[in-house]
């Protein structure tokens, strides 16, 4: 499974993005990712969970590809489902952990 993630907006206005693949992740991290995607019922989420544009809030775009299934979800920080937040937090850990 491959997951692409982009965060835009926020005070900094600096977009951050990363693509991860369970085939190249360490075993534990790959298992966590599969679990979090499942826990979010990611493939059943609506494609857009929009909110009115608000100053300095984040927007996230996540695309997951598993076999021949692919789904993209765009979500505003103000409308993140509780079940999706752990996946976003996990993806941000990957962004921060990336080598400089």
């Amino acid at each position: 499974m491959q997951v692409s993630f982009t965060r835009t907006g926020g005070f900094t206005g600096i977009p951050l993005n990363i693509t991860v693949d369970t085939r190249s992740l360490p075993f534990d991290r790959a298992n966590q990712l599969r679990h979090l995607v499942e826990r979010a019922s990611f493939f059943d989420l609506p494609a857009a969970l929009p909110a009115p544009a608000l100053p300095d809030r984040f927007q996230y775009e996540i695309t997951a590809q598993k076999g021949d299934r692919q789904h993209t979800v765009t979500v505003s920080e103000a409308t993140i489902p509780a079940t999706l937040k752990p996946l976003i937090d996990w993806l941000m850990e990957e962004v921060r952990g990336r080598g400089r």
């Binding site: 926020g10 005070f11 900094t12 608000l54 300095d56 809030r57 937090d89 941000m92 921060r96």
Partner: peptide, 21 residues
């Protein structure tokens, strides 16, 4: 946790600690 942001939510200001890295 490690929130890289500050914002005004319509009523108040909110500040994160930043991720550090």
């Amino acid at each position: 946790v490690g929130y890289d942001n500050a914002f005004w939510n319509g009523d108040q200001m909110i500040y994160g600690d930043g991720g550090g890295r």
